[in-house]
Design a protein around this nucleic acid. Structure first.
Length: 885
RNA sequence: GGGCGAUUAGCUCAGCUGGUUAGAGCGCCGUCCUCACACGGCGGAGGUCACUGGUUCGAAUCCAGUAUCGCCCACCA
């Protein structure tokens, strides 16, 4: 055994060493042939746009904790890693880089551009993967996938063709959200609204054959050029006389009719709406209801089209100004008022989205959504926390068709071919040479690519080899858990549900764990503009991966945002150091080399009754094991890690190790027993902590006596309830209370910690035998020498005294202490006790309480009252003595 | 407009099915370099659990309302 062990834990070398070793030895690899119960997670694939942020660190850590836990429990574990091509996002990143060289993607051409993006992908991906490794993630790298790799492309085509054949995919000309900068259609989800201070322009539309005019209100005057009607509410009394009339569209001199539609709100604006079916979703719908023509006045780059007459060629915002100016010039502007409203921007670049009519591909998701709702209702998939189910239902039941085509170059090209001869479409799994309809050879593949979420939606099964019926699929699908953020429930979770159910007939995952957002210390969202981004890699370099992981685990309340605190993490780094040193301490005292099993401890227990501290720590250990199991089962990782922290530091280190120190040093049976049990408890704790703190626990475990190659496969501790010794736990609690009150008395009397004091103990009730058995411990922990037991009589002279449940104590002093301070302390205690007692008396005096509360609660209350009463009496006496000369 | 969530110590937050002496980390005060650890030990201060009612023998915990904050969805031009 290596006794050369550093005084403090240095993570860097340890982490590098173990990760390499784990990976080389194939520890992360899943075995699809295994007959053990399977546990699988498909990693939410990070985008190959850049590098990982704290959100990823959180997400990955949570998955790894579950994965390592299950692996130790003996499950057949697969955590499948991968990355996402992230169509529009990645294309934008690369385009931005090209722009720095003064180039555009069109300068390169599609093929060359794609090559450049692939180059970028390789770079970004390898960076991301190394970050995931640094976090200690135990995913099966041999199965790593990419949403644009060959296998997934096959899955994408299969799904597309089947949905097309089912009539669930269709192509058509509709009004879609268009980003004039990205030059592509985007889905409703990709539009983010932000409040904007706009204006409401009131424009006069002259009525044909009359001097009267109709005033309409709009926030987008430039779209008036594309108006094809004006609408009023059918029951609006102000406008009854205008029904069926015609108005002259100003600036364009176009005659358009006044229509009635109950969509119009009479209260808003003037109660009359200009209808622009080409550039507004509501107007588009209204246009369909009334068969209105569509006039496109804004083009794909956000510039005014030919249809815009004299404004043609202008940017849409310039056009707005000029249209307003022109109207004003003609005295057609009735009023302008400020008007705050929400404006939709492109999720990826922020550019204000332009609703535009164009030909796109859509998925009819309604039937798929119904199946998904049903599955969640039947609890085939459970959300943690559960309230996200409501959000899921809400969105799913109001779902609209999904626009899946993107006018991009980076992505899965839609598997449809246009025939130049007959104009028909051929949709196929394989590249086609012949038109299905006319057998012509003049085929051109659709140039649009699919929304990046289309391929992500297939992730849980496409990564397992689908459409082939592989062994992996049957073993690992449905996956056990999905760990992801609430921000992509609609984008991703919902769509995986729909696709999984449609193509596998089963939900893609049994449980969805929703993790929150990682915010900064003050609770602000991390963002580049705010400059508060924390780079997980820097943290790992500085504090160690284990500390970073433990910090996120202990802060991760399901579904709740976590403010990431550096000072808190420093605390958990100290925890790592504490673990290191606890191990170090034992290693310095260990003589035996053979592993210590549960059986060894059990036979020790059988031989003779163990000392209190052993019975206590073994019992507490079992309680902690049971609690950890419960918490992990419920995905309460913050509770599990918090409890382990407390147990390890404040029970195992602060009390147990301190208590056994008295036994060590010799080669007595006592010393051996203590070392044995301490080693057992420490080794067990390391196994408990391993999913959270993988590197340090492995390093320490390897140094301690152990069985097996790696802690990764050591069995996760299972609770033995028969070791839970309630009596020992309760006695220990009282003992700690006594120790603490003696220490407090010492500290407040300003007695040097090293100073040994003669002490007198007056046991309460039946406590004497117990106190005598703990005499040496008491001497060590409180620096008392000698300890004298006396029945009731207190020694006179210079003393400091106090009480606890077990005993009164009185410590002899050399010199006088500050009497005033003592009185004050006792006074404070007295006050608190009196309050407690009053409260307990009132409670017990209430007959309803005594009758209705459970017996054990009443009993506990009685006991507390009794103890408080006794203590109070003693304190009073002590105070009286103090007052006497 | 609809929905969801939050409000607990100086700061950031736990407190899971109602019964604790209301906890943690950091910070603060005092003290100690005691032979595992100063990334440490020991001790201490600090809270009318947002407010108002209700249910209950008993409420930080359940219910209703109020206030403040946050998020999501919708998008009345």
């Amino acid at each position: 055994m290596n006794k050369e062990i550093a005084k403090s834990y240095e993570p860097q070398e340890v982490e590098r060493k173990w990760y390499t070793l784990w990976e080389e030895r194939g520890y992360f690899r899943a075995d699809e042939e295994s007959t053990n119960p399977s546990f699988s997670i498909a990693m939410p694939p990070p985008n190959v746009t850049g590098s990982l942020h704290m959100g990823h660190a959180l997400n990955m850590t949570l998955q790894d904790i579950l994965t390592r836990w299950e692996r130790m429990k003996g499950s057949n574990v697969l955590w499948l890693p991968g990355t996402d091509h992230a169509g529009i996002a990645t294309q934008n990143v690369v385009e931005r880089q090209l722009a720095e060289q003064g180039k555009k993607r069109t300068d390169l051409g599609r093929e060359e551009f794609e090559r450049v993006v692939w180059e970028w992908k390789e770079k970004a991906e390898s960076n991301i993967l190394s970050q995931i490794r640094k976090l200690g993630c135990s995913c099966d790298w041999s199965r790593q996938r990419f949403t644009l790799d060959e296998g997934l492309s096959r899955a994408v085509r299969e799904v597309f063709v089947q949905l097309y054949d089912d009539g669930l995919i269709y192509r058509g000309e509709y009004l879609v959200n268009w980003c004039p900068r990205c030059r592509t259609a985007i889905s409703d989800l990709e539009v983010e609204f932000s409040p904007t201070q706009g204006k409401l322009w009131h424009i006069r539309y002259p009525i044909k054959g009359s001097d009267e005019s109709l005033v309409v209100a709009t926030t987008r005057p430039e779209t008036m050029l594309g108006d094809t009607a004006v609408a009023v509410h059918p029951e609006d009394k102000r406008y009854l006389h205008l029904h069926g009339k015609t108005v002259i569209l100003p600036l364009m001199d176009r005659e358009i009719s006044v229509i009635t539609d109950s969509f119009v709100e009479m209260e808003f604006g003037t109660g009359a709406v200009k209808v622009t079916p080409g550039h507004d979703p509501n107007d588009f719908e209204m246009g369909r209801r009334h068969s209105l023509p569509i006039v496109k006045v804004i083009g794909e780059e956000g510039q005014m089209t030919e249809e815009a007459g004299e404004f043609s060629g202008l940017d849409r915002y310039q056009a707005r100004k000029q249209v307003v100016a022109a109207l004003e010039h003609q005295d057609l502007l009735a009023k302008v008022e400020p008007h705050p409203h929400n404006v939709g921007g492109c999720q990826r670049c922020g550019t204000v989205v332009e609703p535009l009519v164009s030909t796109q591909w859509f998925v009819k998701v309604k039937p798929l959504a119904e199946a998904a709702i049903e599955a969640v209702e039947k609890k085939e998939t459970v959300f943690v926390p559960q309230n996200y189910e409501k959000i899921f239902f809400e969105w799913m039941s109001n779902i609209h068709d999904w626009c899946i085509s993107r006018q991009l170059w980076w992505g899965h090209r839609i598997p449809a071919w246009h025939c130049e001869s007959c104009g028909e479409l051929t949709v196929s799994r394989e590249d086609v040479e012949l038109c299905d309809h006319c057998q012509g050879r003049d085929l051109v593949q659709e140039s649009d690519v699919l929304d990046t979420w289309f391929s992500s939606a297939l992730w849980p099964f496409s990564t397992l080899g689908w459409p082939d019926e592989t062994k992996e699929l049957s073993t690992y699908y449905p996956t056990t858990a999905l760990v992801t953020g609430f921000d992509i429930i609609f984008f991703w979770v919902a769509r995986m549900m729909m696709m999984g159910l449609r193509f596998r007939g089963e939900v893609p995952f049994r449980r969805v764990y929703i993790n929150g957002l990682v915010r900064d210390e003050k609770g602000h969202k991390m963002s580049k503009s705010r400059g508060n981004i924390i780079d997980p890699l820097e943290l790992i370099d500085q504090y160690g991966s284990d500390a970073v992981r433990f910090t996120v685990a202990v802060s991760a309340v399901p579904g709740t945002d976590i403010p990431f605190s550096i000072s808190r993490m420093a605390g958990y780094r100290a925890f790592c150091n504490k673990i290191w040193n606890a191990g170090r301490f034992l290693l310095l005292n260990i003589e035996t080399h053979s592993p210590i099993s549960e059986k060894d401890v059990e036979s020790l227990r059988q031989e003779s009754e163990l000392a209190l501290q052993h019975r206590w720590i073994l019992g507490r250990l079992q309680q902690v094991i049971a609690g950890t199991d419960r918490n992990l089962e419920k995905f309460l990782l913050h509770e599990a890690s918090h409890d382990l922290y407390h147990f390890f530091w404040h029970e195992l280190c602060d009390w147990y190790i301190e208590l056994i120190k008295a036994d060590l040093g010799g080669s007595s049976a006592k010393a051996e027993g203590s070392v044995l049990i301490a080693t057992f408890v420490l080794e067990t704790s390391l196994r408990l902590l391993h999913p959270f703190i993988p590197f340090l626990t492995e390093e320490m475990w390897q140094r301690l006596p152990h069985e097996g190659e790696s802690i990764m496969f050591a069995p996760y501790p299972r609770s033995r309830v028969d070791w839970i010794d309630e009596e020992a736990i309760s006695q220990m609690e009282q003992f700690q209370e006594l120790v603490t009150s003696i220490r407090t008395a010492r500290a407040e009397s300003n007695i040097a910690p090293s100073k040994k004091l003669p002490a007198q103990l007056i046991p309460r009730g039946e406590a004497e035998a117990f106190l005598r058995s703990q005499q040496h411990q008491l001497q060590n922990l409180c620096r008392l020498d000698p300890i004298e037991f006396s029945p009731a009589q207190k020694d006179k002279g210079l003393r400091v005294s106090g009480v606890s449940r077990l005993a009164e104590f009185s410590l002899a002093l050399d010199e006088a202490v500050d009497l005033e301070a003592k009185r004050e302390r006792i006074g404070r205690q007295l006050q608190k006790l009196t309050q407690d007692l009053e409260r307990l008396e009132t409670k017990l005096g209430n007959s309803a309480f005594v009758q209705k509360a459970p017996a054990h609660v009443v009993e506990a209350t009685r006991l507390r009252r009794h103890e408080a009463g006794e203590q109070l009496k003693n304190l009073q006496e002590t105070l009286n003595e103090l007052s006497q000369p």
